[in-house]
Design a protein around this nucleic acid. Sequence first.
DNA 1: AATTACCCTATAGATTTAATAGGATAAACA
DNA 2: TGTTTATCCTATTAAATCTATAGGGTAATT
Lengths: 136, 136
Amino acid sequence: MLSKKTKYGLKALTYLASQANKEPVQIAEIAQHENISQKFLESILLSLRKTGFLGSKKGKGGGYYLIKDPSEIPMTTVIRVLEGPIAMVPCVSLNFYEKCDDCPDENECSVHKLMLMVRDSALEVYRNNTLADILT
Amino acid sequence: MLSKKTKYGLKALTYLASQANKEPVQIAEIAQHENISQKFLESILLSLRKTGFLGSKKGKGGGYYLIKDPSEIPMTTVIRVLEGPIAMVPCVSLNFYEKCDDCPDENECSVHKLMLMVRDSALEVYRNNTLADILT
DNA sequence: AATTACCCTATAGATTTAATAGGATAAACA
DNA sequence: TGTTTATCCTATTAAATCTATAGGGTAATT
């Protein structure tokens, strides 16, 4: 399951990307437009700022804005920051690899074999789509 | 993340599929060979029997065995029984569809759009692989 | 009748997720 | 300079889910 955090984060990024100009948008406006708990969204936007997707401005007229062009933001990076590993098991993860406690040999594990294929197929989708591509 | 239930279930099915003959295999043997908690595995095998993947025999010489040929068991059905929906959000699920509480229009939702692609790519993998295909 | 091994329900412990609370900090503006 | 606006940050809680265990019941074999 996709976490709410990822869902809300994606929606917020989309909303920012669909803005006509690059003026900061307030949390309240995004939360209201996307039906998201404002406080929860606040923490999500904060993490997106810290990971370099968003800029922010305090005080009146402040808010969040995209730092890069939507076409420069691949879904791979967004998903990894919001959701974590793209792989469904750590033993097939590119960026979050971990060996399984059980499983003496990955090359003889059917789960490993299957999940490698699943990871590759998901990765292809995320790599071929930027924030600009998923705008409606 | 793939649940342990799914992981263990897949491993157990694989182990049964790799048996030379169709004699029942005891839970203890599977648990030991795959490093799985026996009691936990017991409940997983039970659910696999109830959903028509496995047969069982009680008493001495009893155990679990595959009902169908491994090549007749597509990963789609296995994953759906063990893990649940293949889709990462209910609004793009074929077998477990649910409308989002937020989101007035799915056709204008970027998350929907992205997750539809991810679902399709995963589905292709699961549809093209049977239990026989993931044996090592 | 004794042994073996699956059958079944309930429950507890651990982890993760989702959301809330409450205030600190900084910018704008009158 | 003081008030308002809006982000920044930490801690905590509530809920849900996952994982595993407990404890006995049932059926088949020998």
